[in-house]
């Protein structure tokens, strides 16, 4: 069993905090690692890959330095990380962004609701789905 449960890649501090609170409320995990941009995410995962395979990655799309879709592409191209479920978690509802993420191999695409009650609901259900059942993807 890995020590790490959920990797959250999010540059917006408020969104990160809200996501962590919702995940903790749902008891899905107390092992959440927060990374602030795509570059940090890549360094973290590929820096020491053996110890750092999370059950699920929540990945923001629009971030400074390295965008979410670039991180997604690298994760899905590498045999060691390909099976980690990746949930895109973003404000963008652009059909172009959604298509691109699925084309790159995203396992889910969630639009962050403005309403916190809805936001908390989707985070909880997504977190539970991907962590409780120990799902890996092909």
């Amino acid at each position: 069993m890995n020590a790490l449960e959920i990797l959250l890649v999010e540059d917006n501090a408020a969104d990160a905090k809200l996501t962590i609170i919702a995940l903790q409320e749902a008891n899905v995990s107390n092992k959440i690692v927060l990374l602030r941009d795509g570059n940090e995410a890549l360094e973290y995962i590929f820096g020491s890959i053996e110890d750092r395979v999370p059950k699920v990655i929540f990945l923001d799309l629009k971030m400074p330095k390295v965008n979410g879709n670039e991180v997604l592409a690298k994760l899905k191209q590498d045999g060691r990380t390909r099976k980690i479920p990746v949930v895109m978690f973003t404000s963008s509802q652009e059909p172009r962004d959604i298509k691109e993420c699925f084309d790159l191999g995203a396992n889910s695409y969630l639009v962050k609701p403005v309403d916190y009650d809805d936001f908390s609901k989707v985070v909880k259900s997504m977190g539970q789905y991907w962590t409780l059942h120990n799902i890996t993807v092909d």
Binding site: A14, D15, L18, I21, S91, S92, K112, Y116
Partner: peptide, 17 residues
């Protein structure tokens, strides 16, 4: 309006919390 979503979510979420 797109960029306003995140700050509004923060106000709404933290007031609720």
């Amino acid at each position: 309006s797109h960029d306003l979503r995140a700050p509004v979510r923060a106000i709404h979420g933290f007031s609720r919390i």
